[in-house]
């Protein structure tokens, strides 16, 4: 029955080569993007690209600052909205809510996570944009279309709810009950316990959840593109249009072959995204793995 052993060996090496092949895709992505974007870096220095405001590919000006700022604006807005909401909601789910409520709410988060970005975009166009132009902007006496970094931030905030909630709930579950009991038996109220003990203990996990959400927000393309206005200028206020990096790639890949260095610039944008997101993901996953091991 040697055949069985041969079969086992074949399975072993086949699966191993699949593993190596799929992991080498990462290397391929990095090398490919670096090679493709190198013509741009040969012509202009990196610092200049990252800080230059002027974006006019026809004239050979490739300033990334508007796009970097656009990405930062929408990401920051979404964090300002989502982080406090998610911390409160997940603490509520873990510490206060009944089992029944928790069991019925968490699957809803799965639904929210499963909704494709383009549907968030549709919702943004149909609901968030009119909300801003008809209700929020008039409060400040501003007359705008509503396509703005604020709209992008709101849509993104909703998109990162599920990932933050699910990780935060998991992190809060890893905190030992004894710790809570100890604090309560010292005479602290439940709210004091949550503030001073639980959230402090959960801090690394919460940070990891936020970092993971940030990297999700950085890479989100279509939903943001549909509501942001896409004007390559550095946004000055919440109601200005913005132009995040992913949207830049998605909107212009069609014409990038016709203008010199344009393709290198777009590939550089993709490389930038990849490196930032890879780094952020790596950090938060390492933190989360550590927490899991200690739990």
């Amino acid at each position: 029955m040697k055949f069985r052993l041969v079969k086992d060996l074949i399975a072993k090496y086949l699966s191993k080569s699949l593993l190596i092949l799929s992991l080498s895709v990462v290397v391929l992505i990095v090398i490919g993007l670096a090679m493709k974007s190198s013509p741009l870096l040969d012509n202009v220095n990196l610092f200049h690209i990252l800080t230059e405001k002027n974006w006019s590919p026809q004239k050979g000006n490739f300033g990334f600052l508007p796009f970097i700022m656009g990405t930062l604006w929408v990401t920051l807005i979404s964090l300002v909205i989502a982080v406090p909401l998610c911390i409160l909601a997940s603490t509520y789910l873990v510490e206060y809510a009944s089992d029944r409520l928790r069991i019925s709410v968490l699957p809803l988060m799965n639904v929210l996570a499963a909704i494709p970005p383009v549907l968030y975009g549709v919702w943004g166009v149909l609901f968030v944009v009119p909300l801003i132009s008809d209700w929020i902007a008039p409060i400040f006496n501003i007359n705008i279309t509503g396509y703005s970094v604020l709209a992008g931030g709101i849509v993104l905030a909703v998109m990162i709810f599920p990932i933050m909630i699910s990780i935060m709930v998991e992190v809060l579950h890893t905190i030992p009950k004894e710790l809570k009991a100890a604090s309560l038996s010292l005479g602290a109220t439940k709210w004091e316990t949550i503030q001073k003990v639980i959230l402090r203990k959960a801090r690394p996990g919460i940070i990891a959840a936020v970092v993971l959400a940030v990297s999700r927000a950085f890479g989100e393309t279509v939903a943001v593109l549909m509501v942001c206005g896409n004007i390559p200028k550095v946004p000055q206020s919440l109601f200005d249009a913005g132009y995040p990096i992913p949207a830049l790639i998605a909107n212009n890949f069609g014409e990038m072959m016709s203008i010199p260095l344009y393709d290198a610039a777009l590939m550089f944008a993709a490389l930038l995204l990849f490196v930032i997101i890879f780094g952020f993901n790596l950090i938060s996953r390492i933190i989360l793995n550590r927490l899991e091991e200690h739990a």
Binding site: L19, L23, V26, L28, I29, G32, L33, K36, L212, S215, R216, F218, G219, E220, T221, P246, I249, A250, F253, M257, D263, L266, M267, A270, L273, F274, I277, F278, F280, N281, L282, R285, I286, N289
Partner: peptide
């Protein structure tokens, strides 16, 4: 490290995959 890398790959946005696939196709 493989498991960690797959966790990280899970977070890479599709636009990056798309961009690299597009340039390979070109």
């Amino acid at each position: 490290s493989s498991k960690l890398l797959f966790d990280v790959l899970f977070g890479i946005p599709s636009i990056v995959y798309g961009a690299i696939a597009f340039s390979i196709m070109v």
